[in-house]
């Protein structure tokens, strides 16, 4: 594997009162989509800010592209969408994008053309001459998203890029992210929505309380989690299943959604046993499938089950 795009080595960052990131190491390889997952307050944004040199680590070091310089010196190669969206409210949309391009070192005329193209692609070209404050939140987010990609960076760092977007816009953004990765560039994004990460990411790192919990390719993470997993869908008589699902001889862990459930079989238990028990109890099943564990299940198992890992209240300046 070539030089990693981002290399975080034993980084610790403390804020007054708590440790946001604790001895964290991770490597984002060049190319592909890397998901940084974790509950609120896990240290995702702090990690990203450390990578962006907005914060300085108390311990450890961070390297980008294997280069000793910090992200600002390499800013022409990096695109960044912060979690806290911020644009100059009084500026016109097009002017703003041109400005964001210029501070990344693109010539003014070039920046203008690219900005125009992005606005068309995101279907907000009609708003180019409007002030930012006249746009909806979702549109502002699209503008900022475009602003972080204007200079065609080889590394794109997106902090919670899909939060606050409606499904259609989220889909449009997802398409762009996938396209960037398909072009051989690297995307690092943080999220707490596991389904999204599972579908998009080549690699993931799950962090909780500032510490790395799981790290690797999605397939590898699932394989390492081990065990046999069953996905259930209920048609009727759901309550009849309660006793069976609570039986520790059959079920090691249950992730219950009401109308559906995902569970990990207990060691030595057989899915056939479970099916027989459910059918015998008269539970109407819509689905019974032996599956790979979902990232969500892994996430909940690794993070949620640990009572110390309950989401921390979001602290300003150090949240997520």
């Amino acid at each position: 594997m070539s030089t990693p795009s981002v290399s975080v080595e034993s980084v610790t960052k403390r804020f007054a009162g708590h440790t946001a990131v604790s001895d964290l190491s991770l490597q984002v390889p060049s190319g592909g989509i890397y998901g940084l997952l974790g509950p609120n307050g896990a240290g995702k944004s702090t990690t990203i800010r450390l990578i962006m040199s907005i914060l300085q680590p108390d311990e450890g070091r961070i390297a980008l592209f294997g280069d000793g310089r910090n992200s600002r010196d390499l800013s022409a190669r990096i695109g960044y969408l912060p979690e806290e969206r911020g644009l100059y409210k009084k500026m016109k949309v097009l002017d703003h994008l041109v400005f964001l391009g210029e501070v990344k070192g693109i010539a003014r005329n070039d920046a203008r053309q690219r900005a125009q193209a992005w606005l068309e692609r995101l279907e907000i070209a009609g708003w180019a001459q409007k002030k930012v404050e006249d746009l909806s939140k979702g549109m502002q987010q699209k503008v900022q998203f475009a602003g972080s990609l204007l200079h065609e960076p080889e590394l794109v760092i997106l902090d919670e890029p899909f939060s606050g977007l409606d499904p259609i816009n989220a889909q449009a953004m997802k398409d762009i992210v996938v396209e960037i990765a398909a072009g051989g560039r690297t995307v690092l994004f943080s999220t707490h929505v596991m389904e999204q990460a599972e579908r998009m990411c080549d690699r993931v790192a799950i962090i909780a309380r500032g510490k790395l919990v799981v790290n690797g390719t999605v397939a590898q993470v699932k394989a390492d989690f081990g065990g046999r997993h069953v996905a259930l869908g209920f048609a009727h008589d759901r309550h009849q299943a309660d006793a069976i699902l609570a039986d520790p001889r059959l079920v090691a862990r249950l992730d219950d959604y009401g109308a559906s459930a995902e569970l990990k079989m207990a060691d030595g238990a057989d899915p056939g046993q479970l099916l027989a028990a459910l059918v015998g109890a008269g539970v109407g099943l819509r689905r019974f499938e032996v599956v790979e564990p979902s990232l969500h299940a892994i996430f909940v198992a690794k993070v949620g089950a640990d009572p110390d890992a309950t989401p921390l209240p979001a602290v300003a300046g150090a949240s997520a």
């Binding site: 800010r49 962006m52 040199s53 907005i54 992200s71 600002r72 800013s75 990096i78 960044y80 912060p82 806290e84 969206r85 911020g86 644009l87 100059y88 409210k89 964001l100 501070v103 990344k104 900022q144 602003g147 972080s148």
Partner: peptide, 13 residues
């Protein structure tokens, strides 16, 4: 307060 500087600090000194 507008926090746009998070984008700016990563591009400008």
């Amino acid at each position: 307060n507008s926090r746009i500087m998070e984008v700016l600090t990563s591009s400008l000194t």
